[in-house]
């Protein structure tokens, strides 16, 4: 159940990933982890120190990392390869397409530092096309967890989802919405707040912003349903169709380009099965820049206020 939104513990999703790997490593010998020089930055270091014989340092060579991971999967390992999401996806897209996806290799692709909230490193390091690229590939599964615990659980679940999986984490500490006992069900979105006027569908850090927006809108008499769509592929079609039919309007919110991301995936379901008005809260087809994470989220229209505005726009179109 939801705790009071202002009093939530702040934790990093990438730490959830790192701790998930260690727990996996304890119980399954097949788990191997690869990193490309930024081992501690992506928290793969937790695993590297606990299981040095099953950790492979790749150096700064992401293309080789994706394909070495593919080879490891061929001899029965369950490889997780990790670096910043811009590098674990865009940098080696062809390796992912041919060696991993076309072959349906059992490789887990981990992208830390997803989204604009990476902050001061600027546009080069802010992955905002990764969801679109990964979900376009046959056989790939895409997960964007919302907090520490969900990141840990999703990491552990990914080991036992057959074939390629992409999981995206963030850099900054974010409010912890779930706890140790919250189950993670791959492919099933979670209704965090029920409501009948509009459904806000969010992933990653935007789930928290959606809950804040719903709280504010609730006081104004607008009854929002909030859905954490942590699995973007395969998408939870039934949950989206039900939200469209029962609420009649949808707002999607993601820390990603507007083209091709989670919002587009939701729109694909809506136009085919339950056409209702939709508004997109996302990065509007531009690169980011340096700045503090919260400043950037505000500057690029990714805060609860932007979700509130989008809800008001979509309700006029209902």
């Amino acid at each position: 159940m939801l705790k009071e939104l202002t009093k939530l513990e702040m934790k990093k999703t990438r730490e959830g990933f790192g701790h998930g790997l260690v727990d996996l490593g304890e119980k399954d010998e097949r788990i191997v982890v690869l990193a490309a020089d930024v081992t501690d930055s992506v928290n793969a270091g937790f695993f590297a120190r606990r299981f040095p014989e099953r950790f492979v340092q790749m150096g700064i060579a992401e293309q080789n990392m994706a394909t070495v991971a593919t080879g490891l999967s061929l001899v029965g390992k369950i490889p997780f390869y990790s670096t910043y999401s811009v590098f674990s996806t865009c940098r080696c897209m062809d390796q992912i397409r041919i060696s991993i996806c076309y072959s349906n290799a059992n490789v887990k692709i981990c992208g830390a530092h997803g989204g604009i909230s990476v902050g001061q490193d600027g546009a080069t390091h802010q992955a905002m096309e990764d969801i679109a690229m990964m979900r376009s590939l046959p056989n790939m599964k895409v997960i964007v967890p919302c907090d520490y615990w969900q990141s840990k659980r999703a990491t552990m679940a990914a080991a036992y989802i057959d074939g390629p999986v992409f999981i995206r984490f963030g850099r900054e500490a974010v409010p912890t919405l779930t706890d140790e006992s919250t189950p993670f069900e791959f492919g099933k979105g979670v209704v965090l707040r029920d409501g009948g006027d509009v459904a806000i569908i969010a992933c990653g850090v935007m789930v928290y912003e959606a809950l804040v927006a719903a709280e504010v809108l609730g006081k104004q008499g607008i009854d929002c349903r909030v859905i954490n769509l942590h699995t973007i592929k395969p998408i939870d079609r039934d949950l989206i169709i039900r939200a469209a039919r029962e609420c009649g309007a949808i707002v999607t919110a993601e820390e990603h380009q507007v083209y091709g991301g989670m919002g587009s995936a939701v729109a694909e379901v809506l136009v085919s099965h339950a056409p209702v008005p939709q508004e997109f809260v996302a990065v509007m087809d531009c690169f980011g820049q340096s700045g503090q994470p919260d400043e950037l989220l505000r500057a690029y229209g990714l805060k609860s206020e932007d979700i509130i505005a989008a809800v008001k726009r979509v309700l006029k179109r209902k």
Partner: peptide, 26 residues
């Protein structure tokens, strides 16, 4: 053993198999 056709990937995959075999002492 693996889908291929885009050049420059096979040796990396072979390296993964070789490294995995070393880990297993196979």
């Amino acid at each position: 053993e693996i889908s291929s056709g885009s050049l420059g990937q096979g040796l990396s995959i072979a390296c993964g198999v070789a490294k995995g075999s070393k880990i297993d002492k196979h």
